[in-house]
Write a protein that binds this DNA or RNA. Sequence first.
DNA 1: CAACACCCTGGAGCGCACTCCAGCGCAAGC
DNA 2: GCTTGCGCTGGAGTGCGCTCCAGGGTGTTG
Lengths: 134, 134
Amino acid sequence: MRGMTVIDEDTTERRLTIGEAAEATGLSIDTLRYYEKAGLVLRAPDRSSSGQRRYGEADLRWIGTLVMLRRTGMPIRDMRRFVDLYGVDGSEPERLRILQEHREHVLQQLAEVQTHLTAIDRKIEYYEDTVMTK
Amino acid sequence: MRGMTVIDEDTTERRLTIGEAAEATGLSIDTLRYYEKAGLVLRAPDRSSSGQRRYGEADLRWIGTLVMLRRTGMPIRDMRRFVDLYGVDGSEPERLRILQEHREHVLQQLAEVQTHLTAIDRKIEYYEDTVMTK
DNA sequence: CAACACCCTGGAGCGCACTCCAGCGCAAGC
DNA sequence: GCTTGCGCTGGAGTGCGCTCCAGGGTGTTG
């Protein structure tokens, strides 16, 4: 049982304010609103009676997906295309294709950065030598 | 002898136009001029009698260093600080420190991207399953 | 009930890293 | 010798991804 997520521990789901959601996702409040405006969310979060956003589990999970795409370098524009497909029936193959292409892209970037990193390592070695022997 | 670089094969060094240098470094012509203006080059390239830039070996090697820093995510501002230290005697320890810090930073980024990449892989797996079994 | 923290909106502003442009000069090939 | 292409400059423009702001509402705490 350990490690399993207990669902519906409370009958009422914990709903976070935008500030709490920012805390939880690592995005800023402004960025959360910006992503919403930019059409990156599947469904806008519910609002309290006074019009304040309340983020539920599903909202946070989706924002997690956004963060994962964004932090691997996907431009907002492309994220948007991806999101939009969630409104299209049978678009799963295309969503898959986008993810696969993005994956390849990320791998290429990683490889390039790693190459440059070894060059940096060589330069560091060089400095370690000159600094030490001076 | 194989693999060794022959130096001074020609007595006159091959000096590239900005277009050729762009080709060689993977930067655009505009970016080369921009880097120069931004104070990222150790020494401005020589000019032809008519005032055109001519890039030599040393210029290209330094630009290679710039590319390696830039493509690993170092901001122009920080690159500039690094470059400026080349004019300061005894600044080797600080240059070393900057490179080491940058290295740590890059490693952290790599780790984060790799984490998100496995999340992407899981999502891809999920789609592969649903797409296949549909 | 006052003070303070938090939230709302539309829209402006910002920093970054280029990228493009006008208007010009030089030069190499046909 | 003229056309075509590359190069020059200073400066404006661009796209991106936020970030900030004014002006206002809400809500909780002492």
